[in-house]
Design a binder for these strands. Structure first.
Lengths: 344, 344
DNA sequence: CTGAAAGCGCTAACAG
DNA sequence: CTGTTAGCGCTTTCAG
């Protein structure tokens, strides 16, 4: 609160201002209880008066401890990862650990770069989306010697721990439900993202389920970029004008599904009587649509929570090379109003 | 790539493995060009072989330079800040600087905590949303001695630089356009967020514009939490059932506006003939709705871009106490399909 | 309960 | 172009 300093304040400044040794100042500022109340007050007062903010860089170097958790995700603009983040933040909130986010845009090279950058800060753990990484990334993670939790997906070989759902199974399950409900001419609309492995796996599981019932995907279309809602609309129109008698459309995410739903209702098409619809994710947005789109909850917040929990546990309990954790959550179908209930 | 080390690797390890001095290794790893090609190759090879990742903690402490930009925003789940982030990331992308995000949930205490946390890492600059901060936060920012850019809002006294729009003017402008278009019984629906100062300022500007035309807000309602789309729907229904002959609804954000639009269309109400609508933000989502909601672009990406630009400029050019920058962008109204064009 | 000494792993600033 | 010498600001450790 005195005159703005050119040089940031140090412990020494607080020490001098309070007449207490640097060491004791350090103790007070770290909330250790082996300090007399008198010293504590003197220090706290001086620190506040000066506007001292500790230098974590120095602290971290000296203590070899960094209370940061690197969270590496593909995107922040599609509703799914923000929810994962919420789960992570909530559980880390009242611990020492703090999440730091890196975005990869679904690009392996960028993932590698971001990972390198993050690891160079020596975080206490890494939470990273997906099981597919470049060799270099895998090597870095293995060499880092810190807990690694791969999230979202369980279809593959984890490096260390993993928390997620089987997207293959999710796609299969939805495919089965659709077939069971009696739909037969089924189209698929999704993202043109060769690097979105989870969407791909859902598609694989889906076609597999149809195949088992002797059905082939009647039509499909992939998009990239632009407003997902608008794309869902356009693609739905395109498919319907191209292929006759489509009676179901499976969308790879809720947002394009919502676009399709709006389009069909506008056209006066009976949903789910004439055409059934389903998406994926269980986004909150769906609550506000004219009809609730059938979907499947991807357990996003829960995945975040559990992943953070693992890092937390490990960073506390000595971290004595515990065995990797594997958590596979089971997403449920919400039929909403756009998927006929199977007669049974 | 050798056996996983218990202790993280250091420069010294690379030095020994490559037979080059620590100092030269350091130079190579920082891409300095005052190293012979021979040494460079030896070092690079050894580093890659060992899987060495530099320790930025130590580097930062030694060099007194941290290439991090603290970005402090209220939320990540409402479409507006992710876009700001995109603007920031894009312009920082090919520089040394890296954004690190902190979330405040619109809570001043949390802002204070996050800010303290961030500043303790001694970043190269701070980009922070809004002009309203606790005294302690302002003090920290002023004492930090690093460039500070307050974003989104220009209605107030900045600490240092500022990039944004006048939300008061934005509300006023929309109010004027609505009145000019001939609407007279006007309702307002918004968030119940005493701490969302920008929404409040828009509301103030809005009522002010109406007042100038001798009009009072006919009805209003505020919500908090839940799916914005669903809330927009509910609130719109509530207002219409409570107040007769409302001919315009101004929503404090596009998401609830979209909910209202869907509801009105479902009810077979003529938009904008019988009731006009407008939101705020210019979110991409609107492209997929049955009608394009009238809105006003908040210039989110541009704000992010310019803010980052300021930090970048300052951190490069010696940072010789340059005068604060002030950038006020001017948002334009997009009438879309839900605001009658003024007869003129 | 308090303090002194010795680094943490790296880079600035010099000297070769 | 390369190496040496001092720290960066804090915490650990060990004596009081």
């Amino acid at each position: 609160m005195t005159t703005p300093p050119k040089r940031p304040l140090t412990l020494r400044d607080v020490s001098e201002a309070s007449g207490v040794s640097e060491m004791t100042v350090s103790r007070v500022l770290r909330n250790r209880d082996d300090v007399s109340e008198a010293s504590r007050q003197k220090v706290l007062q001086a620190a506040k008066r000066l506007g001292y903010v500790p230098n974590k860089i120095a602290g971290a170097l000296a203590s070899q401890r960094v209370n940061l958790v690197a969270v590496i995700i593909p995107s922040m603009s599609n509703m799914v990862f923000p929810e994962v983040m919420t789960g992570i933040s909530r559980t880390l909130e009242d611990s020492e650990l703090q999440p730091v986010v890196g975005i990869t845009d679904y690009l392996p090279e960028k993932e590698e770069k971001v990972l390198y950058e993050m690891l160079s800060w020596r975080p206490s753990g890494v939470i990273i989306a997906g099981l597919e990484h470049s060799d270099a990334s895998r090597a870095m993670l293995m060499a880092s010697g810190i807990p690694v939790v791969e999230i979202m997906d369980t279809d593959g070989q984890p490096i260390d721990s993993v928390v997620g759902i089987s997207h293959r199974a999710a796609g299969r399950k939805m495919g089965e439900a659709i077939v069971e409900a009696g739909y037969r001419k089924i189209a698929f609309l999704g993202t043109k993202m060769p690097l979105d492995h989870r969407a791909r796996k859902r598609f694989e599981g889906f076609t597999q389920a149809l195949a088992k019932a002797g059905i082939e995907v009647a039509d499909h279309e992939f998009y990239s970029g632009g407003s997902a809602l608008a794309k869902g609309r356009e693609m739905t129109e395109a498919v319907l004008s191209r292929t006759n008698d489509v009676d179901f459309i499976y969308y790879s995410n809720d947002m394009i599904g919502a676009g399709g739903l709006l389009y069909l209702l506008e056209q006066g098409i009976d949903v789910p009587g004439q055409i059934g619809l389903a998406g994926f994710n269980g986004v909150e947005l769906l609550q506000g649509l004219p009809k609730r789109l059938a979907t499947m909850d991807a357990c996003r917040a829960e995945i975040g929570r559990q992943a953070a929990e693992i890092i937390l546990r490990r960073s506390q309990s000595g971290d004595a090379d515990p065995s990797p954790t594997r958590i596979e959550l089971t997403p449920m179908i919400s039929p909403g109003d756009t998927l006929r209930v199977a007669d049974s």
